[in-house]
Design a binder for these strands. Structure first.
Length: 476
RNA sequence: GCCUCCUUAGCUCAGUUGGUUAGAGCGCCGGACUGUUAAUCCGUAGGUCCCUGGUUCGAGCCCAGGAGGGGGCGCCA
């Protein structure tokens, strides 16, 4: 296998011939070709002899062109790099017309790059984001694998429309211009591919619960789809979610697991993506120069990530949070758009941000929410007012994890489903787990892109996934 | 779904109270230089001022509608 630039830079086989394959970033002084192959943030400087090389060939070495260069690795005479390749041969494998190639050796706006998402991974920023994203995904698998969890592949197409997590995308092969109807006039789903109504999954949780009640410790990690018309920097219509589910876990076990996992994967990224994170930190600093002081990040990226690893998350109940908010300055001075009057109020982003960014200044885990504002599958606490739910709130991002201990008691669960109008006939398979060998269990969902957003310091979730899907946009 | 802001050269952005031929930096192209680091220096080219309509002697600028994009809120991960 040919060596990547990352491999060559780590081994530094000075004096040996190497082959560099990649794309031209800059061509300076008719001598120095900075080549990137995306294996790392660094480029390899390929030095060509402009006096002996064919001028027509040199003309074709332009930003974006694919090149293959062979030559001896030498210690660099210049200051910007330790080693460089003195080219014996350089071949332009694929030209990039400089008049038309949209990426220039200069700073571009994120909005512009989003329009050319098919090329934006060739930039330093998106290369770094993609490498960090990969390392976070790998760290998540490693974290669970090392702790005896099994990776469950929950279905993407689901026959259930009661996952309870939001609007769903319909999956059908029926002709839209001539939909078969029943005698009553509704869509005849019996004629559809699966002979029933199907959707893209909004969550693998229910299937993960089935698996947990067989394999004890499981997790899913796959794409999920929400047809919500959400227009924010934190929402995607297609995103990846990690959903661990563990038998015989209670709420505290669940919180411990989530906190350990977040610490582990952030630590993994810090250890394995040092250069990329450093680059992203500088990028963020640059970006924030144009913002007023109050809107800038209080810590630089590395400091922020280390802070999360070194400090325990603040854990408190919903009721305690309400008390803090009720007595807070913005509440008393009526600065909140939604004032907190007392128990039962749904927390808005402004309240979550106050708790995380002002009051505690660290990640916060909120637990035991009123059952009225939470899902049917969450375990009802003693007193019948709250459920064993937990949300982990991160600065700037808000809710990064949502989880709960699940309701394992059949009678309580069916009562809740009735109250919340969940169609029970379709959910018999789910209720079977409560009929046969039910046990306490718990789990949570982690929005992968929100994690990547946090670790990379990017400001829009559309810039941490290669090809974002949002309302009105499914390009590429 | 609601609120708000933006759209001027390939990119990033100026553009005065509505007034002559619409500007800058970078990029591109041409040249010089040849151990550069987003190289530097000199020069050239490059515009449907998002679209449609209106007001006006006159619109990049004002008004209305539309399109595309950003941000905030809601929903949530």
């Amino acid at each position: 296998m040919k060596q990547s630039i990352k491999e060559i830079l780590s081994e530094k086989p000075v004096g040996q011939e190497v082959v560099i394959c990649g794309w031209v970033r800059t061509f300076r002084n008719n001598q120095f070709v900075a080549v990137s192959d995306g294996s790392c943030i660094q480029t390899m400087q390929v030095v060509v002899n402009h006096e002996t090389m064919d001028p027509a060939l040199l003309k074709r070495i332009t930003t974006g062109a694919a090149v293959m260069a062979t030559g001896v690795l030498e210690e660099s005479q210049g200051k910007g790099q330790a080693v460089e390749v003195r080219a014996n041969t350089i071949e332009v494998v694929g030209d990039a017309d400089p008049d038309k190639y949209p990426l220039q050796p200069k700073r571009h706006g994120m909005e512009f790059l989003r329009e050319i998402a098919h090329l934006r991974m060739r930039t330093n920023t998106f290369g770094a984001v993609m490498r960090v994203r990969h390392n976070l995904a790998y760290a998540i698998h490693k974290f669970f694998h090392d702790r005896g969890f099994y990776y469950i592949h929950s279905p993407i197409i689901t026959g259930s429309d009661a996952e309870g997590a939001g609007e769903m995308f319909r999956v059908t092969t029926l002709p839209l211009d001539n939909v078969p109807k029943t005698p009553e006039g509704s869509v005849d789903v019996k004629k559809d591919f699966f002979e029933k109504m199907t959707n893209l999954t909004v969550s693998g949780q229910l299937e993960a619960e089935l698996a947990a009640l067989a394999l004890s410790r499981v997790y899913t990690f796959g794409p999920t789809f929400r047809a919500e018309n959400s227009n924010t920097t934190r929402h995607l219509a297609e995103f990846w979610m990690i959903e661990p589910e563990v038998a015989f876990f209670d709420l505290k076990d669940n919180m411990d697991l989530a906190e350990d996992m977040l610490r582990y994967v952030i630590g993994y990224a810090l250890e394995h993506c040092e250069d990329d994170i450093q680059f992203l930190q500088d990028r963020q600093l640059q970006e924030e120069k144009s913002k007023p002081m109050a809107e800038r990040s209080p810590m630089d990226l590395t400091t922020k990530l280390k802070f999360v690893i070194d400090n325990a998350f603040e854990r408190l109940t919903y009721g305690e949070a309400i008390e803090i908010l009720r007595n807070s300055k913005p509440n008393k001075k009526k600065k909140f758009q939604y004032l907190i009057e007392g128990w039962g109020a749904d927390l808005q982003s402004e309240h979550e941000r106050y708790l995380v960014e002002q009051h505690f200044q660290k990640p916060v885990i909120l637990t035991n929410y009123p059952k009225e504002i939470k899902s049917f599958y969450m375990r009802v606490d003693d007193g019948d007012k709250t459920v064993s739910a937990m949300d982990i709130l991160f600065p700037a991002i808000g809710e990064i994890v949502g989880g709960s201990q699940r309701e394992e008691r059949l009678d309580v669960l069916t009562k809740r489903m009735e109250e919340m109008h969940i169609p029970m006939e379709e959910m018999q398979w789910y209720l079977d787990t409560r009929k046969f060998g039910t046990c306490p269990h718990a789990g949570f969902g982690l929005g992968f892109e929100r994690l990547v957003l946090f670790v990379t310091g990017m400001s829009n979730i559309r810039d941490v996934i290669p090809f974002p899907r949002t309302p009105g946009n499914a390009e590429f």
